[in-house]
């Protein structure tokens, strides 16, 4: 209700009312069918806010991009419970420290879909504790290019592979 920074009302709560006292709206609402992946909806909104941030204040300038990057990390199947926890931290920083309403509400679609559709997030988690964003093998690409090597010994294979 009320655009990307509005309130997410899952089907379980469809008896709620569009009213100032319950779910307020500026007049806009979007409907997503059950066929939609709500994680992808939230990821799209996270990128929207990162793009819309003017860059004046630290929390919104950096926070919205960190949020979008973390959603991308999850989408790539490299997320962990630590990333979920960190997105909650980002939401607190955005809500309490931002200069204007854009930053205050930028994390709402992520946090609300995380609460309403936990499955959409959890099935993307690679591990339940921690997964680094840093890819050691990818970081060696420049070195491989310079040395002209691409043999097995020039690669670092992750443990579980």
């Amino acid at each position: 209700m009320g655009g990307p920074s509005g309130t997410c009302v899952p089907w379980r709560e469809f008896e709620r009312r569009i009213a100032f006292e319950d779910v307020p709206s500026a007049g806009a609402f979007m409907v997503f069918s059950r066929g939609r992946d709500m994680f992808e909806v939230a990821r799209n909104f996270a990128h929207f806010f990162a793009h819309e941030s003017c860059g004046f204040c630290t929390p919104c300038r950096v926070g919205t991009s960190l949020l979008a990057n973390t959603m991308d990390k999850l989408a790539a199947g490299k997320g962990s419970a630590y990333d979920m926890q960190r997105m909650q931290t980002l939401m607190r920083v955005l809500l309490s420290m931002s200069h204007c309403g854009l930053g205050h509400t930028a994390a709402k679609p992520v946090v609300q879909t995380m609460a309403a559709f936990p499955d959409a997030y959890e099935r993307r988690l690679k591990r339940l504790d921690f997964e680094p964003a840093f890819d050691l093998d990818a970081a060696l690409a420049t070195a491989r290019h310079i040395t002209g090597r691409d043999d097995d010994w020039a690669h670092i294979v992750s443990e579980e592979a």
């Binding site: 630290t58 929390p59 300038r61 950096v62 926070g63 960190l66 931290t89 607190r92 920083v93 309490s96 420290m97």
Partner: peptide, 17 residues
């Protein structure tokens, strides 16, 4: 404690940015 944590988060953001 809450403001202290938020301030640390902001300075961390400046470092990673």
């Amino acid at each position: 404690p809450e403001l202290a944590d938020m301030r640390r988060a902001l300075v961390e953001m400046l470092f990673v940015e």
